[in-house]
Design a protein around this nucleic acid. Structure first.
Lengths: 145, 145
DNA sequence: TTTAACATTCATCTGATATGAATGTTTGAA
DNA sequence: TTCAAACATTCATATCAGATGAATGTTAAA
């Protein structure tokens, strides 16, 4: 009952970008270093986020990534639903359950899951990286700006 | 973001027992057959449930298992908390996250998790196996009662 | 044409979860 | 006293989603 690291990393990437001055292009490389994860791995997360429009990537020299839309419009629920492969609390079909038809468990757990997502839905990326300045201070600063 | 099969099976076992006539002793063997899971495996789940008092086990010939208390007093939240090893939505320490101190994500997700459990808490085993008769009909009947 | 970035593909690792064989222990009944 | 049927325990292994990263391709600005 835990989100995958993919989702975790996706949040880290987004928070990183949200903390940067608007329109600054960050690189996958620098983010990988900050969070001590391999470049390839960060890239995969970035790909998914870019595919959903949450991140905007530009290639070529002096390319990089930035948020695809204002942090106020990036909802946390959206991120979770994008990154998590399975969001269903149980699978009554895998070892198929004979009592399935009369069992209320599934419906109850799905409602609970809905409650989870409903809560998360109340927040946007802006709520996570506020104030951005204090996040910036926690990052390993070199040359940046 | 899914409950483990252990939890799933724990529910199946409990629902099975709750559907049986009170005071009837069921065996691990028969439950294993019903749900097509190995005896050893069911045993492990039963052990945990028995340890928490949700199931009462008696050894020896003509031994068996039954609910350890009325199904109305077995709360679903209790079962989940018993069976799930990890109930924390994220681990900010595993690949340690540098922005942790200023990050609101953890708190938000924990609240969401609380919402999940709060919802589940509203139900007991009695809600799952009601009416017990219809569950009984779904089981593979041989000699029983 | 070079360089620095994103993009893609492929291969592999890893650990929680899941599984079950083998064996011990208890208890009631014959 | 012995047997049989049940729970109980221990040990070993399978499995697979999730995680990881090396190698290589593609793009675009300088």
């Amino acid at each position: 009952m835990r989100l995958t690291k993919h989702t975790d990393y996706a949040f880290r990437v987004l928070i990183y970008l949200a903390s940067m001055p608007e329109d600054r292009l960050s690189t996958v490389q620098e983010i990988a270093e900050q969070f001590d994860v391999s470049r390839s791995h960060v890239m995969k997360i970035v790909q998914k986020l870019a595919g959903a429009g949450l991140i905007q990537a530009s290639r070529g020299q002096h390319g990089g990534i930035r948020l695809g839309k204002p942090k106020q419009s990036i909802n946390l629920r959206q991120v979770i639903e994008l990154m998590e492969a399975t969001l269903t609390p149980v699978n009554c079909d895998d070892p198929v359950c004979v009592i399935q038809k009369s069992c209320a468990l599934k419906a109850i757990l799905f409602e609970a899951q809905r409650a989870f997502l409903k809560h998360v839905e109340r927040y946007t990326l802006a709520d996570l990286a506020e104030p951005a300045v204090s996040i910036l201070h926690l990052l390993n600063r070199d040359e940046r700006g």
